[in-house]
Design a protein around this nucleic acid. Structure first.
Lengths: 248, 248
DNA sequence: ACCTGAACACCGTTCAAGT
DNA sequence: ACCTGAACACCGTTCAAGT
C-alpha cells in the first residue's frame, strides 16, 4: 500500500527480480528537456506542494538523484518550468493601436495563465525569472504604456502597479482555483460563518455577507478597469500617435 | 556543529547526564498561549520557511510532539498566529467622516503589518482566517464603502478589489522585505540584467530599465490612489452623510 | 492529564562507487 | 559521461508507554 513498498519503487520501470537490468523500457537519455516535460506532467496531475524530486525520479524510471546531473537544484527546475508556463500568455499576442486594450488583454491572459498552471506563481518568491517569456510580457506592457504617452519613469511605475495587481490577485486566488469545483461550496461556508456573527459587533459584515465572494474573475476585472481608467491615458490623436514608437 | 549533536538536543533545557530530571528549568505548563508566544518569537528570529515544530519543541524545552496536545496540527497554529499578527493593523484604528481616507489608512496599515510579520501572508493559502482581527479589518472596509454610498453588492465587490490588491502586492513584496538591506542591491542586479538585453529585441525594456523597480511603497500607493479614485465616491454632502450608517 | 520517545513515511541534497 | 544507492540531516504526525 505504502509508496515505499519494495514493489512500487520503480513503478514505471518493469524490473525482473534479482538485479536484472530493466526490460521493456525505452531508457531515454536524461536532459533538461526530458526532465522538464516529466516535471510539467507531474505538476499538472498533482498540486505543486506534493511535487517531489523522488516522484520525478520514479516517473522518469531513474534514481531521484540523477536529476542533479542536469539542474543545480529544485529551484533551478522551478524557474525553468515557471517561465515555460508563461508561454500561453505571450503566444499569439498582437499589439493593436489601442494601448488600453493591449494592457487589458495581456493582464487578463497572464492571470488566466498563472491560474491554470500554478508553477509561475509558486516561484514568485524567487523574484522575476528574467527569462524569455517573462521578458516578452514586460516588453508588451512597457511598450503599450509608452505608446499611451507615458514617459519612461511613469511607464515603469505603472507597469509595476499592473504586475503587482495581476500576479498578486492570481496568487491569492490560486488555492481556490486549485480545488476547482469545491470553490462555490467553500464560499458558501465562509458566507455562513459571516452570517453567524453578532450584527451589533459587525453591522457592515452582517449587512453585506450575502454579496461577499463574488466571482473572482469579476473582482479582477473590476480592479483592472479601474486601474486602466485611472493610470493609462486614452489613445492620443492620430497625429500624436504617429510620433510614438511604432507598433511591434 | 550539527544541530543533531547529542549536546544540542535540549539547548534550552540544562540536563544532567544519565536520565536525571531537568534542573534549573522553570517548566511552564504548556497551553496555546505559551506555544503561540514561543512560536511568534521563533518566527520573528528566522524566516517562516525554516520554522519547524521540532525547533518549537526545543525552544519550549519540551518534546516536539507535546504540541499536538494543544493544536490540531501546524496549520491550526499558523492560523492562530496569522490572525494575531494582524493586531497592529486594527489596534487604534479610528474611522473618520472621510471614507476614502479610512480605506487608504486601513490598506496602507494592513500592507505594512503583513510585511513586518509575514505569518499572515504565509497562510493566505489556507483562506481567510475569519477570526477576530481579520473580521475587524473587513468590518472597517465594508463600513467605509457603504458610508461612501455604495450598495451592499458594490461594497462587497470593491472590498474584494482592495483586499486582493493590498494582500496580493504585500505577498509579492514579502520575499524582498525579508532580505531587507539587500533589496537595493537585488534591484540593481535585475536592472543590470535588463540592460544586457538586445535593444532590437526589447526596445521598450531597453528604454525604461533605469526606471524599473522603484520603491515598492510608492508603487503600492500609486495603485491604491488609482483604485480609490475610481471605485470609491467622494464624500457625499453633509445632508446625505447623516442618512448613512453612523460612524463606529 | 499531560508529556515522552520511538517509529513511520516522507523531504532535498551529497558523494563514493559502479557501468 | 552518466547514473546509482547509501547516507545525512532534516520534515510532520501517530501512538503506546510512562509520570
Amino acid at each position: 500500500m505504502s509508496s515505499l513498498d519494495p514493489e512500487s519503487w520503480c513503478r514505471t520501470n518493469v524490473r525482473i527480480v534479482v538485479k536484472a537490468q530493466p526490460v521493456d523500457v525505452k531508457r531515454v537519455r536524461l536532459n533538461r528537456e526530458v526532465i522538464c516535460g516529466a516535471a510539467a506532467d507531474l505538476l499538472a496531475e498533482t498540486d505543486a506542494a506534493t511535487f517531489s524530486l523522488r516522484a520525478l525520479g520514479e516517473r522518469l524510471g531513474v534514481d531521484a538523484t540523477a536529476f542533479y546531473r542536469h539542474f543545480a537544484d529544485k529551484d533551478d527546475l522551478l524557474r525553468e518550468l515557471g517561465d515555460r508556463s508563461l508561454a500561453p500568455a505571450t503566444r499569439g499576442f498582437k499589439a493593436t493601436d489601442d494601448p488600453r486594450d493591449d494592457i487589458r488583454r495581456m493582464c487578463t491572459g497572464l492571470r488566466r495563465t498563472l491560474l491554470s498552471n500554478q508553477v509561475g506563481l509558486s516561484i514568485t518568491s524567487l523574484g522575476p525569472t528574467r527569462r524569455t517569456n517573462e521578458l516578452q510580457i514586460t516588453e508588451v506592457l512597457l511598450d503599450a504604456l509608452m505608446r499611451a504617452g507615458l514617459d519612461t519613469d511613469r511607464a515603469a511605475m505603472v507597469y509595476h502597479v499592473f504586475i503587482e495587481y495581476t500576479v498578486g490577485s492570481a496568487a491569492l486566488d490560486a488555492p481556490l482555483a486549485a480545488i476547482g469545483a469545491q470553490r462555490s461550496a467553500t464560499y458558501r461556508q465562509w458566507r455562513a460563518d459571516y452570517q453567524k456573527l453578532a450584527p451589533n459587533d459587525y453591522p457592515a459584515i452582517s449587512a453585506t455577507f450575502r454579496s461577499l465572494y463574488p466571482s473572482s474573475d469579476l473582482v479582477f476585472e473590476e480592479g483592472l478597469e479601474a486601474l486602466i481608467g485611472a493610470l493609462v491615458p486614452k489613445p492620443a490623436s492620430r497625429r500624436a500617435r504617429t510620433r510614438a514608437a511604432p507598433n511591434r
